[in-house]
Design a protein around this nucleic acid. Structure first.
Lengths: 127, 127
DNA sequence: ATAAAAACAGTAATAATTCTTATTATTGTT
DNA sequence: AACAATAATAAGAATTATTACTGTTTTTAT
């Protein structure tokens, strides 16, 4: 990881991500922090999320309704996205295979990681 | 599938999608057709891609560099995305498991489908 | 042929994200 | 503690993919 100057806001952004399981968007992180950091700027959230991703401290889960969603849990794990309400749910531990292993050896490029995303309706949205 | 009036342009858009393995963006489809249909509008491409998706004739592969990518091959199959050049490559037939099966029974919501996407560098980008 | 409905082009609007610039915070050095 | 050097920031402008609107054209059923 490149070494960076310390920044209270960057730290706070990462803390928010680490203290939730909701796989938030940039906007949501911003809304969470704005009360405690009234001079926080949305651009700062976006910029730091990019840095975290570069440094491998967070991963992108995918875009839901046009917004990228982030996850501070960098261990490989699958996600479920509810196509009705947009909620993103961890499926950690529910898969008994490593899709990366399953494909390497068959593919000529180099595989860095693999995303497994289930789509459907969450329990709440099934009524 | 809802019944729709016939449209020469809609037909052409689907033909383009069906005759390529490149998993194109809306913009790319538009660029392909513009020479033969000089009065084609980008909005028409977007609108019809949405209709195709509603009708289950195409699927969304995910966003690459901010642009959604589409695929007329609706059979479940995995993809590889090169994070350097953005190329999307089919991994059809290379997975020996059905991730949907692997997860149902463990999850309380209803699973419609499952996306498996590998990330890395394609052969060309590895030099 | 004609009338109703759907599809269209062209353009304006929207919305997520990135970029720019002037200011402020951090860090190492006296 | 004062100091530069430089990274980080706020605010807002700019960019860009996508969607919505409006008046016109195409399709299709009568």
């Amino acid at each position: 990881m490149k070494d960076r100057k310390h920044s209270r806001k960057r730290e706070a952004i990462l803390d928010v991500l680490r203290s939730t399981k909701t796989h938030p968007s940039a906007e949501w992180v911003y809304a969470q922090l704005k009360p405690s950091y009234p001079d926080l700027s949305l651009g700062t959230v976006y910029r730091n999320l990019s840095l975290f991703r570069e440094d491998g401290q967070i991963i992108c889960v995918g875009t839901v309704n046009g917004q990228e969603r982030f996850d501070a849990n960098t261990k490989p794990h699958a996600h479920f996205i509810c196509d009705r309400c947009g909620e993103v749910i961890d499926m950690e531990g529910r898969l008994c295979f490593d899709p990366g292993d399953a494909a390497s050896g068959f593919f000529a490029g180099s595989i860095d990681y693999c995303e497994v995303t289930f789509h459907g309706k969450c329990l709440k949205c099934m009524e």
